[in-house]
Design a protein around this nucleic acid. Structure first.
Lengths: 338, 338
DNA sequence: TTGAAAGCGCTAACAC
DNA sequence: GTGTTAGCGCTTTCAA
């Protein structure tokens, strides 16, 4: 009666005992000996398999991991911030990771460590052996990054290229060009380019490309940096409420997420879009629920980016070499905000 | 020159060697001996700590896990389906899990195994020792569930109560009552209740409560089951396009996600909301981007549900007993769809 | 105060 | 064809 209370998970040893063979014989019988000539007679194999089945044996992944130095778990770390799944960008990345991990039969471990005490702790939790490799969404510069570069943990960055780390990115330059051309075509001349406070590498690329192109196609660009939340700063309000013949007619947001915040801010100020201002974004993450505004934006294949990152990571884990930067194409999708 | 190429992660053994002590002395020096009287002189401790620092030693979580039968990873399994992070419901659950895992210093492993080959495989991957416990979003009835019940993996279900498993749910009854009363108050009499195809336990509770209450407050309820995608079935179209004096005036969707799909379907049919039909949902998941329609719905504290599930799971893992069902309160929030 | 032994579950390599 | 040995990195128990 009481022995069934504490039914432990059976180990290989239990299987072997029941089948009346040695532990390693059982192991070989179940897994097939790889290179070694070690073979098992069909009779024994059958007995072992039967025993395993009877006991409901399943291998212990932790023991396997300790032995083989391979957990078959890959990690996702989105920098220091809380990984807000409500943010459609994070959502699409998560979906891509999930899909690709599934293809590679890897488990996915989420590091949403927004407040983990120290850099040391974060670092230690990343290299403690739980994961075989890491997909990283680099925020601006983080001290963990330096440490990770020293470590031998395979890493692939997404979205923002990082020197010395394999990165999967999107074609920010083309995206900026498409936006600039679109705005010109719509007759705009004075543009407010809203960059992010954190200055991600990819944002800088987008901005630089836009600024580089602007003069040659007749765009006059003013740059501002929004709050990290995407809210308007007082200076920006001043710019936007200047006389109509002076103020910009279109706003380029470095990312959709902030463009949506902006749309709400303008609405609160009684400013109409696209009547008073045109707004374009960048990212083009698909939304599950139809939003109040359909943003004109650059659509990048983020799910594919994440999936590719996992693919590359697997190569890296298996000792391969991968390209420093893998860049995926983008396209412009016209909405009703510009 | 070439030795730095294969810089292995240092182990306790390396630290001990550098400090000139035994491995266990090093271990004790770094972790402090717990119950055992084993102590280390300050001199040795200092040397060991210095050695550890010099080498950049961090403990190996896998070895710890194998030894202590504890990985400090908790898993999240959303049934057989792909865990679509775009779905705001999944997003809010993920956020709650993440937050609570962080509080408990646990890592979060996502099982998004939409297609993992067999039940056996799914089961094996859940009980292989990688996770200390599981938060489960039960879909309708799944065979894995039966197996999991036999196992000794600590489990907590969210949203849908499951017999013999600790569950964290929301007050579906009160939610249904609030909706019914609201609709009556708005003058509705003929209602279409749209349940889900999968018939989740919680949906059944909502429906049952609604039906139970309806007669006493003068509501006439018709029930339909939408596609699993939330799309309209032909029968439903028939119901909705019946003559105005016959057809329902309000639709209750078992969940917001399908309510939003419904809104789009009606829009495609040229039916206006709330002019032609009122629509109410259930879940009240906060949206990051303002949607085209602001749904009248029941708001449940899903993030709190997920966080509580982790709390309970930790109790369970540590050998405690927890309540069979923990129910969190809901409230009605009026939008512009009813 | 420190070291030695044992064991968590598993398998590659080499006996027999 | 099968068993033995050894070791992945760590800590608890006991002996010195």
């Amino acid at each position: 009666m009481k022995k069934s209370l504490k039914k432990q998970k059976p180990s290989m040893r239990d299987v072997a005992r029941l089948a009346g063979v040695n532990r390693v014989t059982a192991s070989v019988a179940l897994n097939g000996s790889l290179r070694t000539g070690t073979r098992v007679s069909d009779a024994t194999r059958l007995r072992v398999v039967a025993a395993a089945k009877e006991l409901g044996y399943t291998p212990n992944a932790i023991a396997l991991a300790l032995r083989g130095q391979r957990t078959n778990i890959i990690g996702y770390f989105s920098g220091y911030e809380f990984l807000d799944a409500h943010d459609p960008f994070n959502a699409v990345i998560l979906n891509g990771l999930q899909r690709s991990c599934h293809m590679h039969r890897q488990d996915l471990l989420i590091f949403g460590s927004y407040q983990r005490n120290s850099v040391e702790e974060v670092y230690a939790s990343l290299v403690n052996g739980k994961i075989d490799g890491l997909v990283l969404l680099p925020t601006s510069h983080s001290p963990v990054l330096d440490q990770l570069l020293q470590s031998h943990l395979p890493i692939v960055a997404v979205a923002n290229p990082v020197p010395n780390i394999a990165s999967v990115t999107v074609d920010d330059l083309t995206g900026s060009r498409l936006l600039a051309e679109y705005l010109v075509q719509k007759g705009h001349q004075r543009i407010l380019y809203r960059a992010d406070a954190a200055e991600h590498t990819s944002t800088r690329r987008r901005l630089k490309a836009f600024l580089g192109l602007a003069p040659s196609i007749g765009l006059n660009v003013q740059v501002s940096h929004g709050e990290s939340s995407g809210q308007l700063r007082p200076e920006e309000v001043t710019i936007l409420t200047a006389p109509p013949d002076v103020r910009p007619t279109a706003i380029v947001s470095w990312a959709d997420s902030h463009a949506y915040v902006l749309l709400e801010s303008l609405r609160a100020l009684g400013i109409r879009v696209p009547d008073d201002f045109s707004i374009v974004g960048f990212d083009g993450v698909p939304l599950r629920i139809r939003p109040a505004y359909t943003l004109t934006t650059i659509r990048a294949p983020w799910e594919q980016v994440a999936a590719t990152a996992v693919d590359l990571l697997m190569d890296l884990i298996e000792g391969g070499k991968v390209a420093q930067e893998t860049m995926l194409p983008v396209e412009l999708v016209a909405g009703d905000t510009a």
